[in-house]
């Protein structure tokens, strides 16, 4: 759907190019997240696609058509654009904000009104209540949703989103992200989204393009693949030590294999029940049950709630077990932790 073909961007007076020979293929109907540290050129890349920034060299193909020569305003009407600061027009009502592009395209009033109401429904704002409000009468989250509706107004096949949830408080952000995914399931646009937030990238992206300096693609793959097998040290350090935990987001709990585990009940009368209990167990016997992995048991408190994992101290290879690594990173164990035990 979108193809960047050896695109470079040089700014005059700067030695290093902002973007150097970037090639990227984005398939129709998928969300591709451009992820990377500040100044890596991900926003520049996004703005090259709708030519808010003109490339110095290379081609940008939209649906097979080279758009580097097209009329930029015509091009942008085929591409939805959402930015972090939203940029709603403060002097226009919600309806007029959404209807502005259709109006410049010469739609008749009735059609615009219907489109506005459809979009307000789609983003979960009651048309009757919100149509006539002004942007300043909306919360940040509502503004962002109207921004998305405005970008969708002329039904463009492509959407560009520059940190769309960056300025939203964490709780609303989570909700907007969920709504966004629901929305995308309905509208199936080709979406390019810029973020520096790994968690957001993993959650939203069908594929992630992880950029280094000058928009050099360090890795371009599905979130699961990037988390499981970082291409190099840069990728590994960028996705960070929490990669395994983030990976859990991608796996529905119900699909994980469920293994039996030994349970050891804590005895409050003893100082260190764990060590002693484990010491009394035969490590080899436990290991036999857990093929290839470390033997383990769950320490359960007197109230029946899991406390932590127990493993025999004498097994040096225990630390390499991915599941073990997972659990060590997990926040304080809760009831469901037990379910994450995989057979390795």
């Amino acid at each position: 759907m979108i193809r960047l073909d050896r695109v470079s961007k040089h700014y005059p007076g700067q030695q290093a190019p902002a973007i150097s020979e970037l090639s990227l293929d984005i398939a129709a109907g998928e969300i591709v997240v451009l992820l990377g540290p500040s100044g890596c050129g991900k926003t520049t890349t996004l703005r090259l696609i709708n030519r808010l920034i003109e490339p110095s060299s290379g081609r940008v193909l939209l649906d097979g058509e080279d758009v580097t020569q097209a009329d930029p305003d015509q091009l942008r009407r085929r591409i939805g654009y959402v930015i972090q600061q939203v940029g709603l027009f403060p002097h226009l009502t919600v309806a007029d904000n959404i209807g502005l592009v259709p109006r410049t395209l010469g739609w008749d009033k009735k059609r615009i009104r219907e489109r506005v109401d459809t979009l307000l429904d789609l983003i979960g704002l009651d048309p009757a209540a919100f149509r006539r409000r002004y942007p300043r009468e909306l919360s940040g989250g509502q503004q962002q949703r109207v921004g998305v509706a405005r970008a969708l107004a002329a039904d463009p096949p492509v959407m560009l989103m520059d940190e769309p949830f960056g300025a939203i408080d964490p709780i609303t952000r989570e909700r907007l992200q969920d709504e966004f995914l629901d929305l995308q399931a309905k509208i199936r646009k080709t979406i390019v989204l810029v973020t520096h937030d790994v968690t957001e990238a993993v959650k939203l992206g069908d594929r992630i393009a992880l950029f280094g300096e000058q928009a050099r693609t360090a890795q371009y793959d599905t979130p699961a693949a990037i988390l499981a097998a970082p291409a190099d040290d840069f990728v590994a350090s960028f996705i960070g030590s929490g990669a395994a935990i983030r990976g859990l987001r991608l796996v529905p709990v119900g699909t994980l294999p469920l293994d039996p585990v030994d349970v050891v009940t804590e005895d409050p009368a003893r100082d260190d029940p764990a060590r002693e209990d484990m010491a009394r167990e035969d490590p080899a016997g436990a290991g036999a049950e857990d093929a290839g992995g470390a033997p383990r048991a769950v320490l359960v408190g007197a109230d029946g709630r899991p406390r932590r994992w127990l493993r025999p101290p004498a097994r040096p290879d225990a630390g390499t077990d991915p599941a073990a690594a997972l659990v060590r990173e997990a926040p304080s164990p809760c009831g469901s932790t037990v379910r994450f035990v995989s057979s390795g």
């Binding site: 709708n50 808010l52 930029p72 305003d73 015509q74 091009l75 942008r76 009407r77 085929r78 591409i79 654009y81 930015i83 600061q85 939203v86 940029g87 709603l88 027009f89 403060p90 502005l100 592009v101 410049t104 921004g147 405005r150 970008a151 560009l160």
Partner: peptide, 17 residues
């Protein structure tokens, strides 16, 4: 505001519009 101008450009409004 720059964001408003940027959004207007990004939506494909021409200079005069």
């Amino acid at each position: 505001p720059r964001a408003v101008e940027d959004a207007a450009r990004g939506l494909g409004l021409g200079r005069w519009e």
